[in-house]
Design a binder for these strands. Sequence first.
DNA 1: TTAGGGTTAG
Length: 461
Amino acid sequence: MKASKSISPFRLSSLLRIQKDPALALQLFQNPNPDSNPQPQKPFRYSLLSYDLIISKLGRAKMFDQLEQILHQMKQETRFAPPEIIFCNVMSYYGRARLADRALQVFDEMPSFRCQRTIKSFNSLLNALFKCGKFEKMKKVLEGIEDYGTPDACTYNILIKAFCGSEDLDNARKVFDEMRSNGLQPSDVTLGTLVHKLCSDSRVKEALELKEDWERVRGVLPNGFVYASLMKGLCGIGEMALAFGLKDEMVRKNIRLDAAVYSTLISALLKAGRRGEVPGLLKEMSEYGCEPNTVTYNAMIHGYCKEKDFEAAYRVLDEMVEKGCRPDAISYNVIIDALCKGGKWSEANLFFQDLPRRGCHPDVLSYRMLFSGLCDCGQFKEAAFVLDEMIFKGCAPHYARTHKLVEGLCQEGNMELVGTVLSSLEKANVLHGDTWRMVISTLCKEKPSDVSELIDTLAMQ
DNA sequence: TTAGGGTTAG
């Protein structure tokens, strides 16, 4: 039998780059020569690029345990010292996943990878802590900033964003002043942060003035981030014509239009009942070489669901898959919520059960929406089943809904299921005193003999 | 993918 040729490190990185499925990419990384005959004697020499690619794929897919394994493997490599950017990215993934301790751990371990920490990785850690809401830890980390370099524009932008997010505009202003006194010019990123904050506080007029001033006085050219925030703010106060005017301004000034700008406008059109204008906008988007992404499709799904046009929403979902754009939890949650609110609880339940086949794992909101919908539709048995599963998956339900479920079951006289639900809630530590009192009061009225049995059952859990 | 925007609900 002819021996098959082993894959080269270069070939592996090319294959990893085009593999969209992170699980398959990991399989490929772990076993780059599955058909090799005989099996190679020497261990595979992974390139730094392959490490970078697999780490980014696992990070984006939130496959953190596998990512840690790859990091551990990379630490054993003696042929190279990994570049700082890999660790910056990993901290960024952990920040987005609200895993502050893991981000801190990565930062602490960088020297053991023979990687020097500069202000760049310091900024990544700072931003990860901010995303996790760990403001006290941010302060503590900032005390040691001198060990890693001088704060740069990125450091200041993170701090401005953090103070804006915690409504501490005085400190945001102080950081801004310090940035300038240290000779650093505010950038389009700084502008984007401030405009976003003003718009989310409904101070759209001030945001527009700021954008004009910065462009005229400081020469800061607003980018797509700035425009998308302004457009959303304007649409929110009913000034859609002005929002569309900003899009024209972007074209005039040759500022790159992107999917976020169009997603904002499509969402606004649908909220305003101007569905007929959406296809034209999609066509224009395509003419500017800009493809719809998951957010654009989600805006359409939401708009069609609001109109109870579920067929159109399903068509968008199919189109996404056809075009290689992966639906996310929001795509599905919007449909589940709308089906429930439209009384189509059975269809919502079936759709929910179908999620794993569609390659999507329900999140806490998927469970809460279905659970709430089933309670609202009076489908208490189904709701109890979903509750059990969501608690098992570690997703906490809202008190008002669980109370309504138990109340519904009490009214139906299904005390056996009440017992099961109460023990599930107790196990998840979300059994509220009012719910408990309501059950006891119902039992005392209807079946006093069952009270001690229920207490015994719960005591045994 | 060291910093900034756009889609769901609550």
